[in-house]
Amino acid sequence: MAFWRYAGRRGLHTAVTLLLLVGFMFVLFRMIPGDPTTMMLGTGELPAEAQQRLRVLWGLDRPLWQQFIAYALNLLQGNLGMSFYFRRPVSEVIAPMLANTVLLMAPVVILAIVIGVAGGSWLGWRRGGRAEEIGAVLALIPRALPVFWTGIVLLALFAYQFRWFPIGGIREAFFFPENWWQRLPFFDITRHLVLPVATGVLASVADPLMIQRTALLEVRHEDFMVLARARGLSGRAQRRLARRNAILPVLTYSAIMVGFAFGGQVLLEVVFNWPGIGRLMVDSVTQRDYPVAQAAFLMMAAVVVFLNLLVDLAYGWLDPRIRGG
């Protein structure tokens, strides 16, 4: 029951954090100079009266605190409001872009963590060897390069030079399969996923990898690892044991990684013309589409906060020492 008290306290923290975020976000976007009516309409093409009509229609003529109360009340009912720019419920605007982002980022995050944990464990196990030095450098290089650059290089090579993969987009507008394997379900989407996923993984694999490597190095010197050898555990079983005990830092990190993945990767989306949430977020800030911008950032923040909560609770599951105390 200590666990439930702990879970309850963490849940309360989470709720307060989110509440503060809502307020912060509301104020933040309104601090950017520029009026949504002006921004949306382009370079001052609307007469002032027409613009004023829009402001009334969108509730922007009311005092800020009234706007906030209306926004907060709607939010409590799960209503994110109407997008200024798209004039649709924000949820309808965000949902398809979020789906696209998840389609792209889910494999990126999963592969980055799996490869990172496996690679980091491998490097940690081979501490001091030449392979470890080379491996660490190889993993760090793509991290240091801009995503944009990596993406363009992959495109130049595999889309322009070899023409194995498409230049961008999520699927071909009208795809006509020419043979049986092109007729496989998801062939077209998979083909479009390869390069952006590869770019995303290259850019994000280094962090989980280095974290896992460091954690593994620490675990290796623990007494229980010596005893594991003494107990006659096989090399594989020993490595698995080390991995299992070194996983917690990566788990914490992956919560943040997943959260940011929900925000999409703007540059990745631009290079590969992927209609995801990242571009939507940037566009909505540019267009001063406060409802969409707030909702998108709030969602991203909420995911980070909730995943942190989840990780904290999962810690108890993965590390029984935390569960008790």
Binding site: I32, P33, G34, D35, T38, M39, G42, T43, G44, T286, Q287, R288
Partner: peptide, 8 residues
């Protein structure tokens, strides 16, 4: 958007 916001 800066141009529109500030100049216009």
């Amino acid at each position: 958007d800066t141009f529109v916001a500030q100049v216009v």
